[in-house]
Amino acid sequence: MATDRQITRIAPAGSCIPSALLVYAGLVFSAVMLALPFFWMALTSLKSSAAVAAYPPSWWPSEFTWSNYRDAWNAAPFGRYYINSVVTGAAATSLQIIFALLMAYAFAVIRFPGKGAILLAVISTMMIPDEMKLVPNYILLSRLHWVDTYWALIIPPAAHAFPVFVLYQYFRTVPPDLLDAAHVDGAGHLRILIQIIAPMARPVLAATALVAFLGRWNDFLWPLIVTNRTVMRTLPIGLNYLKENEGRWNILMAAAIYVIIPMIGLYVAAQRQFVEGITRGALKG
């Protein structure tokens, strides 16, 4: 590949073999640094209680204690946590994407006075830390009697500026001729959006949906504050509960793996589409 050959030049001049070696050394080093926490997490989750406290710790346990995973599962209602995380995450993500689709289309295509100012007001919401919204939102939710319900986990996060921004950037690259043609055919905005624009934007939609779902899945403080009963809790809160049992690092790490595996799986499976989608949306000026 031409590109490859060209970029090779960036490496300091030198004979081919040492430079290839350097490249692999760099890659192996990075791989080790990136993977070490996961390795240690998995390793610790398989150690026996005595091995966890051992000094110095072993890099390979003499026996694998698979029962840690069963103990972690029984230490808290993880089945329920999974259901809550998936249901509220999927619901909030769907709403985020639907609402962002409508808004981004409106910003990109429909004429409206003062559109720029509204867009700015929407984008600036990304600069607000969630911690700042905690108390006012809790008060509001408590007035609505939504505390400790799915509503609390779905509705407040249903509007997010990030998918709006990415989709808006993408829609601006749609050729105007295409829209005009559709208009002439007598299609209204909603029909254009549903039948023409949204299908075109599928990779971008998928990518923003992944980002949204990840955000919901990993959210910690808000679910902690607005849910009271164990049956309403999500996975990160469940993990936090196990932290209470100090010293049981093996159980804790097994639980951590329960929490992170679905997201890693999802992103690994969808990574090409994800990168392509974000690139198409966010990187076009």
Partner: peptide, 12 residues
């Protein structure tokens, strides 16, 4: 209703 650690409970 279990609310987590003393700190979490306090914050809630």
């Amino acid at each position: 209703e279990f609310q987590g650690s003393y700190t979490d409970l306090g914050k809630k």
